[in-house]
Each structure stands twice: as C-alpha cells, then as structure tokens.
Amino acid sequence: MTLAVLLALGVLAVGGGVLVFVVDSMARATFCLLASFIAVAVMILMTGLAYLGTVIILMMIIEMVIMAVFMIMYMMNPAGLMPMSMFHNTRGAALISGLLFAGLTAGIFLADWPEKRGERPKDPTTALGETLMEGHMLTMMTLGVTLFSTIVATVVLATGRGRYDRLGDGLDAAHADDPAGGGVGR
C-alpha cells in the first residue's frame, strides 16, 4: 500500500517535471513544477519526517509564486497563447539527460546502502534541531549571516539608485526622492 502510494507520488513528481517543458504557458509550467515539488514533499512526509516535509511545502509554494512573477516578467509567451517552441538542441539535451537519468538510477540501485543503526528518535523534529544546532551551532550561525549579507549585497549592487541618490549627498534630505513614497517616509 505504502509502496503503491510512493510510486504514484513518484510518477506525479516526474510527470510534473516533464510537463514543465511540455506546456506552452509559463504560468502553467511554474505550477506544474510546484505540483512536482509537493509530490516530493509528501513522499518525505511519508518517511516520517514531518517537519522537513511541511517546511518543503511551505517554502516551495512561496518560491514558486515568486518564480511565477519573474517568469511572467522575463519569459516570452507567458500565457501560452502563441504556440511557440522554445527548445534548443533537443536531441542532444534528450541524450544527455537520458544518460544522466540512467546513470543516477543505476547508482541508486547499485550503491551499498548502510543498514539502519540504532533506534528511530521519538521526536524527529527535536533530533533534527539538536543535530543542526548542538555540534554545528557556529557553522549554522555563520552560514545564516553569510547568506543574509549575500542577499543584501546583491540587492544593493542591482539597484540603480542608492542612498545618496535618494537622500542627497549628506543623507539629510527631509523626504526620500522616490517616485512613489513608502509608508515610513524614508
């Protein structure tokens, strides 16, 4: 029974991924990808990792919606109204991906998976938290801060107008020089 459900979810995941390239509409492609991710998340839920599975659903939905915004903004034909073909190097790509898939599958079946050692923890969420935070607290904190500063730096580099454009050379303008004001007024 479990195996049947897992198989169905696997088919859904792979099918969703394939549909991303088949459908014309970018909006539909995004949400096919979301369906694929959710299928994978449900599979993880079925292995008993409740927190990981739920967090994957949460994050993927938010990410796919934001990705939809960018897809619509940058891609041609976002509604699929024009039957446009957007494939390049179809045969080569199919060959490479087929080979890769075969290789990975072979690896999965031929790898020497270890046997289960010890007991399943009563609360996998706490166990996960402790694993991440206890021995590797410093790493996690540094990672977090690094990620955050990368994001901030990227945005600062990407934006066309900086603080000095908005607030004057002395950063002391009464109001920020923006075309549309924000709520705080700066």
């Binding site: 619509i72 903004m73 940058y74 891609m75 041609m76 034909n77 976002p78 509604a79 109204l81 024009m82």
Partner: peptide, 25 residues
Amino acid sequence: GETGGHGGHHGHHHMDMPLQGGLGM
C-alpha cells in the same frame, strides 16, 4: 495584461501569427 508575450526580441514576427482574438504581442 502582460500575457501577450514577453522578451522583446521578436521583431515583427507577431504580424504573421496573430494570437487569438487579434491580440498582439
């Protein structure tokens, strides 16, 4: 809305293939 198509490197192709309803790119 912005569903008419994005990525402006299509030149005048849209003149040959109108979208349904006569919508343009």
